[in-house]
Amino acid sequence: MARNYVQPGETLTLVAPRTLASGDGFAVGGIVAVALAAAAAYAPVEARRVGVFDMAKAAGAAWTQGQKLYWDNTAFNVTATAGSNALIGVAAQAQASADTVGRVLLTGQIPA
């Protein structure tokens, strides 16, 4: 192992950009993650940036399994609409348009 290796990077300690509940999605710069515990705004929080999570979903559009998904940092939810939203992963399962929670595979990429 290289002497300068620090950690795998799947879980990071980040600064909460707003008050978060455990399981909330959030973005810090180019990092999109899920809070592993509740945190006050600007407090440190352990966050997971890869894995499968049930996350807040934008209602009004159905998802197909494997469809690319994006983080809407204004509405604080996952959407299938690219636009100015950051690519975060894919739908782990299909979701109906009326669903407000969707199963998401966070792939850990850093959005452009």
Score class of each variant (00 low, 15 high):
residue 20 L to V: 13
residue 23 G to I: 11
residue 16 A to K: 00
residue 50 V to M: 09
residue 15 V to D: 12
residue 97 S to I: 04
residue 31 I to V: 14
residue 55 M to W: 07
residue 32 V to I: 14
residue 40 A to N: 15
residue 47 A to D: 05
residue 34 V to W: 01
residue 75 A to V: 11
residue 64 T to S: 14
residue 26 F to D: 00
residue 96 A to H: 04
residue 76 F to D: 12
residue 57 K to M: 08
residue 85 N to H: 09
residue 99 D to G: 04
residue 12 L to Y: 10
residue 17 P to K: 00
residue 94 A to W: 01
residue 85 N to W: 00
residue 13 T to Y: 12
residue 83 G to A: 14
residue 68 K to W: 14
residue 42 Y to D: 15
residue 37 A to N: 13
residue 38 A to E: 11
residue 83 G to W: 03
residue 75 A to F: 08
residue 22 S to G: 13
residue 11 T to D: 14
residue 50 V to Q: 10
residue 29 G to P: 12
residue 69 L to R: 01
residue 91 A to P: 04
residue 99 D to R: 04
residue 71 W to S: 07
residue 32 V to K: 02
residue 54 D to H: 15
residue 94 A to H: 03
residue 31 I to N: 01
residue 20 L to Q: 01
residue 40 A to I: 08
residue 71 W to K: 01
residue 26 F to I: 05
residue 36 L to D: 15
residue 31 I to D: 00
residue 66 G to C: 05
residue 46 E to K: 13
residue 51 G to T: 06
residue 67 Q to K: 08
residue 102 G to H: 06
residue 86 A to D: 15
residue 52 V to C: 07
residue 58 A to T: 07
residue 62 A to G: 11
residue 78 V to W: 00
residue 20 L to S: 01
residue 92 A to D: 11
residue 59 A to F: 05
residue 96 A to Y: 04
residue 22 S to Y: 07
residue 20 L to Y: 02
residue 34 V to R: 08
residue 77 N to G: 06
residue 81 T to W: 01
residue 38 A to D: 11
residue 22 S to W: 09
residue 71 W to L: 08
residue 62 A to V: 10
residue 68 K to Q: 15
residue 74 T to E: 14
residue 21 A to Y: 13
residue 93 Q to M: 10
residue 48 R to Q: 14
residue 24 D to T: 12
residue 39 A to Y: 01
residue 52 V to E: 15
residue 57 K to I: 05
residue 88 I to Y: 00
residue 29 G to A: 09
residue 36 L to I: 03
residue 26 F to S: 03
residue 44 P to L: 10
residue 79 T to R: 00
residue 30 G to A: 12
residue 69 L to I: 15
residue 45 V to M: 05
residue 69 L to Q: 02
residue 55 M to S: 06
residue 35 A to E: 06
residue 33 A to Q: 07
residue 42 Y to V: 13
residue 30 G to D: 09
residue 92 A to Y: 06
residue 75 A to N: 15
residue 19 T to S: 13
residue 24 D to P: 12
residue 96 A to C: 04
residue 51 G to L: 07
residue 100 T to V: 15
residue 73 N to F: 06
residue 16 A to N: 00
residue 96 A to M: 07
residue 75 A to I: 05
residue 66 G to I: 01
residue 96 A to F: 05
residue 92 A to R: 04
residue 18 R to G: 11
residue 72 D to M: 08
residue 100 T to A: 12
residue 64 T to Q: 12
residue 74 T to D: 15
residue 68 K to N: 15
residue 68 K to H: 15
residue 73 N to G: 12
residue 102 G to F: 02
residue 71 W to E: 06
residue 103 R to C: 10
residue 70 Y to C: 04
residue 16 A to W: 00
residue 71 W to P: 09
residue 89 G to E: 02
residue 14 L to V: 03
residue 24 D to N: 13
residue 95 Q to W: 05
residue 33 A to D: 10
residue 98 A to F: 10
residue 41 A to I: 13
residue 79 T to G: 00
residue 18 R to C: 13
residue 55 M to H: 04
residue 42 Y to G: 11
